[in-house]
Design a protein around this nucleic acid. Structure first.
Lengths: 327, 327
DNA sequence: TTGTAAGCGTTATCAA
DNA sequence: TTGATAACGCTTACAA
């Protein structure tokens, strides 16, 4: 910066101003500085800038796993907003470990990020303490919670389960199964299941415990889940798959077994994506506003970083049951 | 840090040492410092540390689009390695724009990242200049290039196309079609297509230009591409789909039209994923070592950051043609 | 093994 | 509209 200043015949401070607040610099001076910057190939040092101003434009995101395509939409939403404001996105995965999450949070606080998004609503006490002390914007997502550390931006998984229960019951299905990824340490799936089973019970439909499965991820796993359910109870008339691409795997399995969907058995999915729409038959599913969650989260962080007061603690972005051919 | 030092009855420098090089501090002192850190809830300021040491543990990745699930594997590979070494990952997307890429590169250089991975091998002259001047580790991936800016870690898309040409020709297919996403500004697909068509020509198989398509992304788009190809030439006996999930969409379309795969028409895909394996029939495809590319890229960056000399300019991680039921 | 002093390259603040 | 000066919170280098 000093070199640029010398080249332009001004002080370093004027170079700094020319970059961050051009309208506070005289046009002629500005022009000279700009020329000097271009000529020297100067790239400012944001590390020094951040230290001096005690602010960064870094925003962190921690997801349970990066392999899961499901986060791509939210990441894109965050990225679109952050880029517009010249903020930077840092991403990492906790591997579904709260300890790892705590470690990452500490590292991000050390980097002095201005905001952090957690796709998770359970945390170690130490993680919560660090976040509360740091006073940075913290967005919890993945599941709407009543008492967020700072702000919750999501939809209610309990409501999702309940909505799907209504949907299936409303269509007349009575012998119903459920399969999801393991719910241990995953409050999102746990809530979705709870909402589903509780609402069905209220509607007078009991789900046999043997028909409530937890399985691994992947299409193959969905196929096996379907197989197990129809073998356990050949009269099952509908299954709700919560999470991953399990439902698609189940439909493939139905094709192999010659089970008509939905004539013989209905299949409902959650988390809409390209694949769900193009299966034969296309799958009834719940669409989550993942992109919008990313956008809203980033907007809140940027607003706070710009010094605005955001008077919200909970942002419910809802969801949508999309009925297609499979129910 | 001063507060912690006071609490522990040592100097700030000793606190710094206790954190970064514990074995250079006397055990008793170390213990006192650790207690003081825990007691005060001190979180070090890496911004200040980075400025002082003139090093960061930040690594940047720029991909054309974050929505595309195809990057998830590479990101996970990078993340796994970086996390192990306490490095941080920053991610953004260029939206397939070289201008945007240049802007992002400048921003990352300003952040003083220690390495940057570009999923792209074409750049603006200015971007190249910035990278060369900055002397940070720069990994280009997506396509193997002979003259990388710094290091190229990838596989050869030309070789991928050629290998698939050999595969189809070897199985006796003679009337062959090809469809990909638009190749404009995408040297990866351009090379793959070139390798495919060139090798087929060498094998005495001419591909009619009307059977070489460029289509948009998504399953639906693959369905339409297949439709157009079989309507243009009802005798086509094989189609190679390069990119995205086009091939899966094509197989869905074949099912709808009652065209047996591969009896009536063979379908080959590229970029193996869960879906490809579980289609009926499972798809013949090319597997790219995406996770490994992420791992290797991160390893090279970390090694350089640790001061090691890495004596490579080009790392060819290869690929694998996986024959399944669709050819 | 520990401490002292001098930066690192910006920006905040105040003065001119 | 511009400039001088003093931080920002660490680490490097060297001394004790």
């Amino acid at each position: 910066m000093k070199d640029v200043a010398r080249l332009a015949g001004v002080s370093a401070m004027t170079v700094s101003r020319a970059m961050r607040a051009p309208d506070t610099v005289a046009p002629a001076t500005l022009e000279r500085v700009r020329r000097a910057i271009a000529q020297s190939g100067y790239v400012p040092n944001r590390v020094a800038g951040s230290l001096s101003s005690n602010r960064t434009t870094l925003v962190a995101l921690i997801v349970p796993s990066l392999r899961n395509a499901l986060y791509a939409e939210m990441i894109q939403g965050m990225s679109d907003v952050l880029m517009k404001h010249d903020f930077q996105l840092m991403i990492s995965d906790s591997g579904y470990s709260l300890q790892q999450e705590e470690k990452l949070i500490a590292a991000y606080v050390a980097q002095r990020v201005c905001g952090i998004v957690l796709h998770n609503t359970r945390h170690t006490p130490q993680a919560v303490r660090i976040l509360k002390n740091s006073a940075l914007t913290c967005i919890e997502t993945g599941n709407l919670v009543a008492n967020p550390i700072d702000i919750s931006v999501s939809f209610s998984n309990y409501a999702v389960g309940a909505a799907m229960a209504e949907h299936l019951a409303g269509l007349g299905y009575r012998r119903i199964g459920f399969a999801s990824l393991p719910v241990r340490g995953n409050e999102r799936l746990r809530e979705r299941r709870k909402g589903f089973l509780t609402r069905l019970a209220k509607l007078g439909i009991a789900v046999r415990p043997e028909l409530v499965l937890e399985v691994g991820p992947g299409l193959e796993s969905g196929s096996r889940a379907l197989a197990r359910i129809v073998e356990t109870d050949p009269k099952v008339d509908a299954v709700f798959f919560a999470g991953d691409v399990l439902a698609a795997g189940a439909v493939f399995e139905c094709q192999r077994r010659g089970l008509d969907v939905p004539g013989r058995i209905a299949v409902a999915a959650s988390d809409d994506n390209d694949l769900m729409q193009h299966m034969i038959p296309p799958l009834t599913t719940v669409r989550f506003p993942r992109y919008e969650i990313g956008v809203r989260s980033a907007e809140l962080i940027v607003a706070r970083a710009m010094g605005q007061e955001v008077g919200v603690r909970t942002v419910d972005l809802g969801f949508e049951v999309i009925r297609r051919g499979s129910t």
